[in-house]
Computed example of a mutant assay.
Amino acid sequence: MVAFNMPKNMISATDLMAKLPTGVTLLDVRTPEEYRAGHIRQAQNFPLDSITEYAGTDKEVYAICHSGQRSAQACQILRDKGYNAISVRGGMNLWQGPVVTSD
């Protein structure tokens, strides 16, 4: 059996779940409507179309979307801005933890 080594700029949803209690910065790059329909409690909504405006103080940030495509794009933009940006592989599709909704 061959072990799969995930790229260092990606993390599994399971590994993210283990990191959340440490207080990581998690950006949900989906639309506000998608975010309100169900998101990880610790996630801040920062849609992909405005990610160039992100100016957080933590240099390590995690990004999640629906399937991993938009978070990968967001992470590339954030890395170009000097952040250590890590995309959640598979996005909310693979998230098994609790979600919250908002109005």
Score class of each variant (00 low, 15 high):
67 S>F: 06
58 D>H: 07
10 M>D: 07
52 T>L: 10
31 T>S: 15
20 L>D: 03
58 D>A: 15
31 T>R: 07
74 A>M: 03
49 D>C: 01
6 M>P: 03
13 A>P: 06
22 T>L: 11
4 F>N: 06
4 F>C: 06
58 D>E: 15
73 Q>Y: 09
7 P>R: 13
16 L>T: 14
33 E>N: 09
48 L>Y: 14
31 T>F: 03
69 Q>D: 08
28 D>G: 04
38 G>H: 03
52 T>A: 15
38 G>N: 02
72 A>G: 10
56 G>Q: 05
30 R>P: 00
53 E>P: 04
32 P>T: 10
56 G>E: 02
8 K>P: 07
44 Q>I: 05
72 A>D: 08
18 A>T: 09
70 R>K: 15
38 G>K: 03
45 N>F: 09
21 P>R: 07
33 E>I: 10
48 L>M: 11
74 A>Y: 00
24 V>Y: 09
25 T>S: 12
37 A>R: 05
44 Q>Y: 01
69 Q>Y: 08
48 L>A: 02
24 V>L: 12
43 A>Y: 00
13 A>V: 06
8 K>S: 15
22 T>Q: 11
67 S>C: 05
65 C>F: 01
7 P>H: 05
32 P>E: 05
59 K>V: 13
22 T>W: 00
14 T>Q: 13
30 R>K: 08
53 E>N: 14
3 A>S: 13
57 T>Q: 15
23 G>S: 06
5 N>T: 13
75 C>H: 11
25 T>K: 12
64 I>R: 01
18 A>S: 12
67 S>M: 06
61 V>Y: 13
62 Y>M: 07
72 A>E: 11
63 A>K: 14
17 M>C: 03
2 V>T: 13
33 E>C: 06
41 R>H: 00
23 G>D: 14
14 T>P: 04
72 A>Y: 06
8 K>D: 13
26 L>E: 02
66 H>S: 04
24 V>H: 08
54 Y>S: 13
24 V>F: 05
74 A>L: 01
32 P>W: 04
57 T>A: 10
34 E>C: 05
70 R>L: 06
68 G>L: 00
36 R>A: 11
71 S>R: 09
21 P>G: 12
